[in-house]
Computed example of a mutant assay.
Amino acid sequence: MDASSQVFVNEGTFGILDDGNIPIESVDWSQGLIAPMAGGALILTGINTGNVHVNVRIQHDHDHDQSQSPDDERWEETARARIRAPHGRLHVESLLHGPHEDLPLLSRSGPGWYQVEVRARGRRLNPDGSIPDSSEYYLIAVRADTPAPPAAMEPRERLPVDSKEELRRERLRRGGA
C-alpha cells in the first residue's frame, strides 16, 4: 500500500510518532536521516521550515524485499532503523500540526517493533531554508518486525563464600572498622 502527501516541517524535522508522543530524551541522533526514540522516530530534513514530499509504503511479510527497487538511483540517502510502537499507533506527523490525515497508519500490526527504511533526495538543496514547497522527497517503507528474543537466562555460577570477608563487609556496612 502506497500513499503520498506533503508534510509540514518545523525546526528541520517531522516524525514517525506513536500516538503523538515525542520521547526526546531517548533520541539517537547517530544516523543523520532517521533518529529512533523509545517510541517512534524523527526524520531530519534539509530545510528548517516548509513542506516536503512524503511517500509511505506499507510492506507485508509476503512482499518481496524493497531494498533494491528500480528507482534506487533517484535516492541520494538511505537509512534503516528498528523502531518501537508501544501504543501501536505510528503515523507520519508534522511536529507542529500532528498526524497527517492523507497518510495511513504505519503500525498495521499493532504494538511492537517495525523495520523502517527512509530514502531521501534534495536534502542538500536548501539547507536550513524556509521554503513553502521544497524539492525534498522522502520514501518511508515500513514492515512489522518480530520481537527480539529474550536474553538467555543462564544460571550464574556461585562463588564460594568467604565467611571472614562477609563478616568484615557487615561490620563496614554498620559503620565499624
Rank of each mutant, 00 (worst) to 15 (best):
Q68A: 06
E93V: 00
A120S: 14
N51P: 04
R84V: 07
A85E: 02
Q59E: 11
R80S: 15
Q115P: 01
E76W: 08
L90V: 07
P86Q: 11
H62T: 08
G50S: 00
D71K: 10
E77L: 13
H87F: 11
L96Q: 15
G98P: 00
G110W: 04
E77H: 12
H87R: 15
H53T: 11
E101F: 10
V56A: 05
N55E: 04
V54T: 06
Q115C: 08
H62E: 14
L105R: 03
A120C: 00
D102Y: 01
D71W: 12
Q115G: 10
V54F: 04
E73D: 07
H100K: 07
H62N: 15
H100Q: 11
R74Q: 14
H87G: 09
Q115F: 08
I58E: 06
I58H: 11
G50R: 08
S67L: 11
E77D: 14
L90E: 07
N51L: 00
A120K: 01
E73Y: 14
L105F: 03
D65L: 14
A79P: 02
R80W: 02
L95F: 06
T49Q: 15
G110R: 13
H100Y: 06
D71E: 09
N55I: 00
H60F: 12
A79S: 14
A79L: 09
E77R: 09
S109D: 12
H97F: 09
H60Q: 15
G88H: 02
L103K: 09
Q68D: 04
T78S: 09
R57G: 00
D65I: 14
G110N: 11
D61G: 09
V52M: 06
S67E: 07
H97Y: 15
H62F: 05
S94Q: 12
N48F: 05
Q66C: 12
T78W: 14
T49K: 15
G88Y: 01
N51W: 03
D65P: 01
L106M: 13
A85L: 14
P99D: 08
R119Q: 09
N51R: 10
P111M: 11
G88R: 04
I58C: 08
Q115H: 15
L106G: 00
D63L: 01
G88K: 01
V118T: 11
P104E: 04
R121E: 05
I58S: 10
G50L: 01
G122F: 01
G50A: 13
L106W: 00
D72E: 13
R119V: 01
S107R: 02
V54W: 03
G122T: 07
D61R: 10
E76D: 12
G88V: 02
A81S: 07
W113K: 14
E76A: 13
I58Y: 12
A79C: 12
S94R: 05
V54P: 02
E76Y: 13
D72W: 14
N51M: 06
G98D: 10
H97L: 07
W113E: 11
